[in-house]
């Protein structure tokens, strides 16, 4: 069953990357929706693994995505879907396997008909829309996108893991909001990376990062990291302000969103401390 879990993880990420590559609005929307559905499959299989007491982690293979035409990645997605379809018999929950099967079959149907298009997400032009940035600002922006896209993926996986292993409704509500927020950021950064021609799949996360021994300490450190991220957004906003109001406003927006994350993490921290909980 862990093998299906890994394969769905890889399929979900490749589908998400494909959605960043596509510039056809309808294809992009479908790919994006499918990646959301696949993430839900991933969480359902995870729940089943926990229920059955099967050990698992978020390890996976690297996912090659560099293509010149969308058709190539679509073919690979269909190959992966067929692979998962063949493995569904390994799931111990027939109802879940059937639910996933019908979703995957519909995805195959849509992907087969999806139009081909030229992919520019890897051309390394490092231009965002029609904005001209200085070399220094372009380098800073490039590094920011790589660091932060990984960070958001990491946060999705951490909060997802915490949620999967917690029976506290209040905490789970907070973890789910944080997962959703990180998805929003990851999608924004992914779109920007594709525009800049530097799209890459976030690297595999080391299990010590999500199999957290001390959640209270993790939340305290996390709050500090969010504060540092606010500073970085503030600096980036200043660095690009003279070249692009649009980008500066975007970084301000991300900066202000961190306030909300910090408030949620403080809430979770207080809940843990009040209830004397820890993993």
């Amino acid at each position: 069953m862990t093998k299906v879990f890994v394969k769905v993880h890889e399929l979900w990420l490749e589908m998400l990357m494909a959605s960043f590559m596509s510039q056809n609005l309808e294809s992009k929307r479908n790919l994006n929706d499918f990646s959301d559905i696949l993430f839900r499959h991933f969480t359902w299989i995870e729940r089943l693994l926990i229920k059955e007491g099967i050990e698992y982690d978020y390890n996976r293979d690297q996912i090659p995505i560099k293509v010149e035409n969308l058709k190539v990645i679509l073919q690979d997605l269909m190959r992966r879907i067929n692979e998962v379809l063949l493995m569904l018999a390994l799931l111990s929950d027939d109802a879940l396997a059937n639910r996933i099967k019908t979703d995957l079959e519909y995805m195959l149907f849509v992907l087969e008909k999806m139009p081909d298009e030229k992919v520019t997400a890897f051309n390394m032009n490092r231009k965002y829309k029609n904005i001209t940035l200085s070399d220094e600002a372009t380098d800073a922006f490039t590094l920011f996108l790589f660091e932060e896209s990984y960070k958001e993926y990491e946060l999705i996986m951490i909060y997802n893991y915490l949620k999967a292993h917690s029976n506290e409704d209040y905490l789970n509500k907070i973890f789910q909001i944080l997962v959703d927020e990180s998805f929003f950021h990851l999608k924004n950064f992914g779109e920007m990376m594709a525009q800049m021609g530097i799209l890459g799949v976030p690297r595999v996360i080391h299990k010590s990062l999500y199999q957290i021994e001390d959640v209270v300490e993790f939340l305290k450190n996390g709050i500090d990291e969010e504060l540092a991220a606010k500073e970085e957004c503030k600096n980036l906003s200043k660095a690009v302000a003279k070249d692009s109001i649009e980008l500066a406003k975007f970084f301000d927006f991300i900066n202000y969103q961190e306030n909300y994350h910090i408030a949620l993490m403080k809430d979770a921290l207080q809940y843990y401390e009040n209830k004397g909980l820890n993993v």
Partner: peptide, 21 residues
């Protein structure tokens, strides 16, 4: 800050030998 060129970006996009044995 380190100057970023296409070779560095290629390593960021797809770090070689990343993972565990």
């Amino acid at each position: 800050m380190v100057q970023i060129d296409s070779e560095l970006i290629a390593h960021m996009q797809n770090p070689h030998n990343y993972g565990r044995i």
